[in-house]
Write a protein that binds this DNA or RNA. Sequence first.
DNA 1: TTTTTTGTGTGGAATTGTGGGGAAAAGTGG
DNA 2: CCACTTTTCCCCACAATTCCACACAAAAAA
Lengths: 147, 147
Amino acid sequence: MIQFLGNMEAKADTKGRIFVPAIFRKCLQSEGEEFLVLRKDVFQECLVLYPGSVWEKEVEMLRSRLNKWNREEQQVFRQFVLDAERLEMDANGRVLIPKRYLRMVSIEGDVRFLGVDDTIEIWAKEKLEKPLVDPDEFSSKLQQLMA
Amino acid sequence: MIQFLGNMEAKADTKGRIFVPAIFRKCLQSEGEEFLVLRKDVFQECLVLYPGSVWEKEVEMLRSRLNKWNREEQQVFRQFVLDAERLEMDANGRVLIPKRYLRMVSIEGDVRFLGVDDTIEIWAKEKLEKPLVDPDEFSSKLQQLMA
DNA sequence: TTTTTTGTGTGGAATTGTGGGGAAAAGTGG
DNA sequence: CCACTTTTCCCCACAATTCCACACAAAAAA
């Protein structure tokens, strides 16, 4: 089971290419992942990189539970794949992020990679400067949820 | 098993020709698909491109569930194949979409190709600008499905 | 510390993808 | 049979992407 952990800075060059941090790369390689899927997060202004196998599992799961002859369910499936794209790393270990996606999450220069479970998130650097949740709220929320 | 993923822009020229995005083309080629079938989606205002083999499977599936000696069921089957058309790509990798179909889904200039499972959808660009499903509805649906 | 290796940032050149249009061929209606 | 539209085939220009090479910084090894 694949697990990413870390938070490192990187920058998109003028062509929209970004080096995937070496630790993540090694992780992907050792798991034999051939490709990645890039997707805009549904709720947050960030991008999500799924290792191929993780993506496939997710889609398979959805496909099996959403009937394509049902209007609403098919629409949900469509929404899920709407902002997703297959990517491959180049010889140097970079991914080319299409301009459209950079715009969607307003990335211009510096970014941060964030390992979150079995996916990798890409944020505009500024957005991760301040905490996502208020620290006090965070601790009490956590306490409450894990009780 | 063939799987399309992605969302890219393209435009219909004055003759109604549209380039099939290169990634999809490669996908089709590697699966040895010789032709495509175009159809208006049953539920949405968009066009669907089926790889030949996918279309055949779909029809077979319908055929097996719809009794041809039942007047109503046969009529449904007929309607399904009525709005469908066989297409081939030209030497440059374009498909010529008959005007009739463009009108059906009100495509005039820019379009978006959308990989959805084993089919490719063609939408008028504007229609994909805003979310297809209300975000709250989407999240609750997903939450419920993946629980 | 010095050297080597690995990781990251940059850019140019070649290739491929996309948008467009012209002219031949094939249908269509008078 | 002719004029006219539609379809098919071919070629061109430009933009985007891929490939390749290099420079440099950081980390690891000697």
